Simulated scan of single mutants.
Amino acid sequence: MAKPRVILITGASSGIGKATALKLQAQGNIVYGAARRVEKMTDLAAAGVHVLKLDVTDEATLVAAVKTIEAEQQRLDVLINNAGYGSYGSLEDVPLAEGEYQFKVNVFGVMRLTQLVLPIMRAQHRGRIINVSSIGGKIYQPLSAWYMGTKHAIEGMSDTLRMELAPFGIDVSIIEPGGIKTEWAGIAEKKLLEVSGDTAYGQQARNVGAMLSLFDTFASNPGVIAKLMVRAVNDVKPKTRYHAGMGAGVSLAARHWLSDRQFDKLMNQATVGAAKLAHFARKDAKRAGSRHYRHG
């Protein structure tokens, strides 16, 4: 019987991270689920997952988490860098401090934790690092410069890591989710409208916000990406990239085949179309509510 792997996954308090931790634990692995909100991980602890309090922007918690795993298990086989968030708004409107924090969470936190686990993996001469990017690491849309910038950075840095770590038996893979039903879209939409909803970029903000709000209706379940993550952990020869979720394949294909200007036009049409769809959905809901009031 294969030896269970020791796995650390960040952002395990909700959504994709939580679903992945549970699936990997169910397979008999030794899973450490890490996040800031430990109170959101009682179900993970009940399932046998080792719960760690970790903030990817806090050096002390990063060091403590790695030391805990090393002391308890004497090894670490897989690191899944899943923690992250989306900060939307026009470049002109988003405060620089917010842009810096977006990079601190989505890029520097990922790379610092990777730095800390690499000595363990090199000593083992084996390991697997899985970085969660996004289709936003390959495409783009208006009012998302900081967020898309972080994901483009993760893509490039992961490709570099894959080559420099190969001699030590360490694999690096990237997960590129499409539209997924998590807290992410709601948080991104809220920040977008707060920052740019009443500025010169207001109409664009409402259009992009409408696209984000539609995720709750059409987006894929987090389990779709959790299943993909498990594949990335278990594949004997892991792929360099995995993608799934609403619109992932179509978006990546469009970016590959269309020119920059053609893709610009497509994205603009998509955001305007989302705004119209959201408008009609609100009208339908209002009419339905009116009918219920009259006949209730």
Rank of each mutant, 00 (worst) to 15 (best):
M1D: 13
M1K: 04
A2M: 11
R5C: 11
V6W: 04
V6Y: 01
I7L: 12
I16D: 04
K18A: 06
A21E: 06
A21G: 00
K23P: 00
K23N: 11
L24R: 00
A26D: 10
Y32W: 15
Y32D: 09
A35G: 14
R36F: 07
R37F: 07
M41L: 07
M41R: 05
A47K: 01
V51Q: 01
D55V: 03
E59F: 06
I69H: 09
E70N: 07
A71C: 10
E72Q: 08
Q74C: 14
V78W: 00
I80A: 03
N81Q: 00
N81Y: 04
N82I: 01
Y85L: 09
E92G: 02
L96T: 11
A97Y: 03
G99Y: 00
G99M: 03
N106D: 10
M111W: 02
Q115L: 04
Q115I: 04
L116S: 00
L116H: 02
L118G: 10
R122L: 10
H125M: 13
H125W: 09
G127P: 07
R128F: 00
S133P: 08
Y140M: 11
W146V: 00
W146L: 05
E155C: 05
E155W: 05
D159S: 03
D159A: 14
R162Q: 14
L165V: 15
L165A: 14
S173G: 08
E176G: 09
P177I: 02
I180G: 02
K181L: 12
K181M: 11
E183F: 02
A188Y: 09
A188R: 03
E189Y: 04
K190M: 15
K191M: 13
K191C: 02
G197I: 05
G197E: 07
D198P: 02
D198W: 08
Y201Q: 13
R206W: 12
R206N: 15
M211R: 01
S213W: 00
N221F: 13
L228K: 02
M229G: 13
T240L: 15
R241N: 14
S251F: 08
A253M: 07
A253V: 10
A253L: 09
A254C: 15
R261A: 15
F263C: 02
F263N: 06
N268R: 06
Q269G: 15
T271E: 09
A275D: 14
L277D: 08
L277Y: 07
A278I: 05
A281K: 06
K283E: 15
A288I: 08
G289T: 08
R291H: 14
H295R: 12
